[in-house]
């Protein structure tokens, strides 16, 4: 299957944004943050109508929206579900997001949705499945997407390291990469990969968006196992790794991900502003 026409994976103007939840619709509409943008999981907006869909449409009229899918099962044993892709495409046509992204994981087998971002063994066979999944998704959307590196809690059987695996998919499909710094930090902590070597391996032109988020220690294993909860503020070591990534990759859209234990919107805005200041510093003359 041929990939859609390549498009730039990032825009000239890059800014910081935040996950958008229906509880924050009104504050998001009123936000005074100049360039703030919002990201949603499209799966949460696949209904015919109602206040949630209307709220998203209203915000999309004023602000950039990006879609971050969680249900496509791109690397699964079966191709992404065509009904699901059609539903996402209809939402894309309605909301017109500036970016589309999904996860380099799997979540479905035998028409059963497992509602988890399950890790992929990095073998040639699985690589082929992921390539086919990305091709199918991009064809259905009529545009290229970004795929996100997973959080690792266990070491999967592998023929290649994760950065090479994702870059291979990118080369074969034309998709870009979404670098989740929090996932990378947790993978480094949990299974011992080198996060800076991982970042160094990524060509800046391949990365179209960066995510940062909060994590929590596992209730059973404590700090030995860190969980990607998106339920707390971004931790200092993640900010530091973001700094390192920006120095290597240059300015990229940065998303503050928050999915649970939602604070006041103004609290999230403070994290957005911190990320925005990091982007602004890259534009200063001594960074030129």
């Amino acid at each position: 299957m041929s990939a859609p026409e390549p498009q730039p994976v990032f825009r000239d103007e890059v800014a910081a944004g935040v996950s958008l939840k229906p509880q924050h619709f009104e504050q998001a509409m009123a936000s005074r943050a100049h360039e703030i943008w919002f990201e949603v999981h499209p799966e949460n907006y696949l209904m015919q109508g109602g206040p949630r869909r209307r709220g998203l449409r209203q915000i999309a009229a004023d602000r950039d929206i990006s879609f971050h899918g969680v249900g496509a099962s791109l690397g699964g044993p079966d191709l992404p579900d065509t009904d699901h892709l059609k539903a996402i495409r209809q939402l894309v046509d309605d909301i017109k997001p500036v970016r589309l992204s999904e996860h380099a994981v799997w979540s479905s087998i035998d028409h059963t949705y497992l509602a988890e971002l399950l890790p992929l063994p990095r073998t040639q066979s699985v690589l082929s499945n992921l390539v086919a999944g990305v091709d199918a998704y991009q064809s259905a959307m009529g545009r290229t997407i970004l795929i996100e590196n997973p959080t690792n809690y266990l070491t999967v059987h592998s023929d290649m390291d994760e950065a090479d695996f994702l870059l291979d998919v990118s080369d074969r499909t034309g998709c870009g990469l979404l670098l989740d710094i929090n996932n990378l930090y947790l993978s480094a902590h949990n299974i011992g990969i080198d996060p800076k070597a991982y970042i160094d391996a990524l060509p800046p032109g391949k990365v179209g968006e960066i995510h940062i988020a909060g994590f929590d220690a596992d209730p059973q294993f404590g700090n030995r196992l860190l969980i990607d909860t998106h339920a707390s503020a971004v931790a200092d070591p993640v900010w530091s790794l973001l700094d390192y990534a920006l120095a290597h990759l240059g300015p990229k859209p940065i998303l503050i991900e928050r999915d649970a234990n939602l604070p006041e919107f103004s609290t999230l805005e403070q994290e957005v502003l911190r990320a925005q200041r990091m982007l602004d510093r890259l534009r200063e003359p001594d960074h030129a």
């Binding site: 509602a115 266990l154 070491t155 999967v156 596992d218």
Partner: peptide, 20 residues
């Protein structure tokens, strides 16, 4: 063990089952 290396992967993979 067809997916993960190391002993007793179920101790941590329970995250996925609990999450589901």
């Amino acid at each position: 063990h067809h997916v993960f290396s190391g002993p007793q992967p179920e101790q941590i993979a329970i995250l996925y089952r609990n999450g589901y």
